[in-house]
């Protein structure tokens, strides 16, 4: 899978998993901050995304603090997944 497609897939998954029903894929820019001022996600969302990483991509984060870096933006997250999978 191309990184570009992966980014779009992640946007869809994030909207679904975090129940962000008022957002559409086009509302999330690749480099928007997911936490803090950007999408306003919080620590619970980070835990939801950790489970998504494990379930859908087989990547396990054991320390929630690692999430802060990995979930910085769609670009960062997609690159992180691409590096660790052969998709």
């Amino acid at each position: 899978m191309q990184v570009k497609e992966l980014r779009e897939e992640l946007k869809e998954k994030i909207i679904e998993q975090l129940n962000l029903e008022e957002l559409s894929v086009s509302d999330i820019k690749d480099d928007d901050a997911l936490f803090g001022d950007g999408l306003c996600l919080d620590s619970i969302d980070a835990l939801e995304l950790i489970v998504m990483l494990d379930k859908d991509y087989g990547i396990q984060l054991t320390d929630p603090k690692e999430g802060q870096e990995v979930f910085k933006s769609i670009t960062v997250l997609a690159d992180y997944i691409a590096e660790r999978t052969n998709k």
């Binding site: 998993q17 619970i44 835990l47 939801e48 489970v51 494990d54």
Partner: peptide, 9 residues
């Protein structure tokens, strides 16, 4: 397995 926190909290 694969449980998420939202419904628990």
């Amino acid at each position: 397995a694969y449980l998420t926190p939202t419904s628990f909290i």
